[in-house]
Design a protein around this nucleic acid. Structure first.
Length: 305
DNA sequence: GCCCAGGTGTCTG
DNA sequence: CAGACACATGGG
């Protein structure tokens, strides 16, 4: 991690192949998003550092990512945590050279890496948030998923108000573990979704499931197995969370509808590709399936889908 | 009104 | 082990 602590702000020196504006396009994809705001080229996000909520204002100059603290100044210890958080959020540890090398010779990806050069996977560092968001998004359209997430966060999350805007922390697993399914059904969760959500929260609150223990597995198959063992987490949710939270570029949510639509578009098909066809197309992506998927998702925001 | 949605669990042959 | 089906509600 390459960063400079300036006391009242911090600077993070990103690697090459990083385009902040491209990342903002992805972050701006829904106007119902509650977990952050994008305004005037800045990303505003509330996070918890050293147990304290801190509002971040993240911008980019020619050579550095600048993080300012409009609402309250974090301690020195917190500033280090914040730098690490931003580093993880934009997946800055990754060397994209091998991905671009592979993609430049790929018939689907080569145009995308040109158009979105420097886009990195925007991560969800909090495992409970990643799992909860995936469960919310199962089998409903994305617009409604954002509505449900907003209600959920505004009901059970922590808020910081600053200059007339509300910024939110995602609810803790502990809070959600103590709910009854009817509580979530009141927010228009289906009974099934409510059960999954509370069940996963209980696993995390009890410590049986944690980001640390999953990261220790250090093997994609083992990680998938551990996640899929939990009720409500199938292959898609497991791979989505590994891709967004658990730091593997080989995770591949192959059944994802967005992926299917993006491929249909990129290949000029009049139907969505079958799983077997996708496996053939993706044979060339070995080790970079998550990045391929992410760039394909990004392509959907250009096509009016 | 109808089809689809960033799926999963369960049941059946 | 593949295939059918229920779930549950909004968006377009």
């Amino acid at each position: 991690m390459d960063w400079i602590d300036r006391g009242t702000s911090i600077e993070i020196i990103p690697p090459s192949e990083f385009d902040f504006k491209e990342c903002l396009v992805y972050l701006e994809r829904s106007d119902r998003e509650v977990m952050h705001q994008v305004r005037n080229g800045f990303l505003y996000k509330l996070i918890k550092a050293n147990q304290e909520p801190v509002l971040l204002k993240i911008g980019k100059s020619s050579d550095a990512i600048h993080v300012e603290f409009p609402a309250n100044y974090p301690s020195s210890k917190s500033r280090r945590e914040i730098a690490a958080y931003v580093w993880e959020l934009f997946d800055l540890e990754r060397d994209l050279t091998p991905f671009y090398e592979m993609a430049s010779r790929d018939k689907v990806l080569h145009t995308l890496i040109d158009k979105y050069h420097g886009l990195r996977i925007i991560r969800i560092p909090d495992l409970f948030e990643a799992l909860a968001w995936a469960i919310i998004g199962q089998q409903i359209n994305l617009a409604f998923a954002y509505t449900l997430k907003k209600r959920f966060v505004e009901q059970y999350g922590e808020k910081l108000a600053y200059k007339g805007f509300d910024f939110w922390l995602f609810p803790d697993a502990q809070t959600i573990a103590s709910l009854e399914t009817d509580d979530l059904k009141g927010l228009q969760f289906s009974a099934r979704k409510a059960e999954y959500m509370i069940g996963v929260a209980k696993e995390m609150a009890s410590g049986k499931l944690s980001k640390e223990s999953l990261l220790q597995k250090n093997d994609l198959g083992e990680m998938q197995k551990a996640l899929i063992a939990i009720r409500g987490i199938g292959a898609w949710t497991a791979d989505y969370c590994i891709m967004k939270c658990l730091n593997s570029t080989a995770a591949f949510p192959i059944s994802d509808v967005g992926l299917h639509n993006a491929l249909k578009m990129q290949l000029g098909m009049n139907r969505k590709p079958a799983i077997e066809e996708i496996k053939e197309i993706a044979a060339n992506w070995k080790g970079w399936e998550a990045y391929a998927t992410f760039y394909l998702w990004r392509s959907l925001y250009d096509e009016g889908l």
